[in-house]
Design a binder for these strands. Structure first.
Length: 275
DNA sequence: AACATGGTCAACCGCTAGTTA
DNA sequence: ATAACTAGCGGTTGACCATGT
């Protein structure tokens, strides 16, 4: 794959857009659309690269852009969706019409992340007060605080939990490094990529019904049953499944519960109202 | 009033995936 | 099959502004 030569360096303007440039771009797109961003600036008479024009249109000039502060409902939605999707800003933006991925990303980094961190700290303090002997932060309660129902964000002292390959949008990414450290930080079990590819195939269209949820449970627990061996997908998987474990036993497992919560949390996507 | 610091947000950069020739 | 190209994404930067000292 050849790499796109970034904006032709010669004669291309950078920096903030002027009202005149905005007007030219808006008029051009209204008349001719934007079928080819690369060719657009030349045809419109703008000394900008196509990328810059696209960004300006998408993030600022589009007629359906909603300006102004985010409502509490929108913020809650972002928090919820971020717990499910991770840093997939465009996917989150798709659920908030009129809001752009850039805007959501900014509001997350400037407001929401801090809010969640402070909420988490409060919870941690509260938990320690209640149970001074507990040093681990791996309980599912802590994971879920500040995030509504399912799909907790394990931000602990500003450190984000590792994202799953599903979340990162890169299903070959196996960058779950330093498993022991993650466990110490209270992160959940790290599941290998074969697990995610299987889950991914179960979750086609992001729709989940009871049967699919059941399948994910089975799958997640078969991995968990490997314990420290969960990186070796061997015959134990089959053996454990044949044991026919009851789900109630499995609810005791915080790690499986955590990932399961994220996965089934996707189910809520369809329930989130659009603003 | 002058400076330092921190927050916000628009814009840029570098990368990947998808498409086309 | 492969190279060239485009669109889109997420991370990062830097200018601007508000607030504190």
């Amino acid at each position: 794959m050849g790499r796109a030569p970034c904006c032709e360096k010669m004669g291309m303007k950078k920096g903030p857009w002027t009202p005149e440039e905005d007007q030219i771009l808006t008029n051009y797109i209204r008349l001719y659309g934007h079928s080819n961003w690369r060719a657009l600036p030349k045809q419109a008479g703008l000394h900008r690269c196509g990328k810059s024009c696209r960004l300006r249109w998408i993030n600022y000039l589009r007629p359906d852009i909603k300006r102004g502060n985010f409502t509490p409902q929108e913020e809650e939605t972002i928090i919820k969706l971020h717990g499910i999707l991770g840093n997939r800003w465009s996917a989150i933006a798709a659920k908030l019409p009129g809001r752009t991925d850039n805007e959501i990303k900014n509001v997350w980094h400037t407001h929401l992340k801090k809010r969640i961190n402070s909420n988490n700290n409060d919870i941690m303090r509260h938990a320690k007060d209640k149970n001074p002997s507990s040093s681990s932060s791996s309980s599912s309660i802590e994971r879920d605080q500040g995030l509504g129902s399912k799909g907790g964000e394990a931000i602990d002292g500003g450190m984000e939990r590792p994202t799953s390959p599903l979340q990162s949008g890169n299903d070959t990414d196996t960058s779950f490094e330093n498993v022991d450290n993650n466990k110490e930080e209270g992160f959940p079990m790290l599941i290998d990529e074969s697990f995610w590819s299987e889950i991914s195939s179960i979750m086609d269209n992001n729709s989940l019904d009871d049967k699919k949820i059941e399948m994910i449970w089975t799958k997640a627990n078969s991995f968990q049953d490997h314990g420290d061996d969960h990186y070796n997908d061997d015959d134990d998987d089959v053996k454990n499944r044949s044991k026919g474990r009851h789900q109630s036993e499995l609810y005791n497992n915080g790690d499986v519960e955590y990932w399961f919560g994220l996965l089934t949390g996707a189910e809520e996507l369809s329930d989130i109202p659009e603003f």
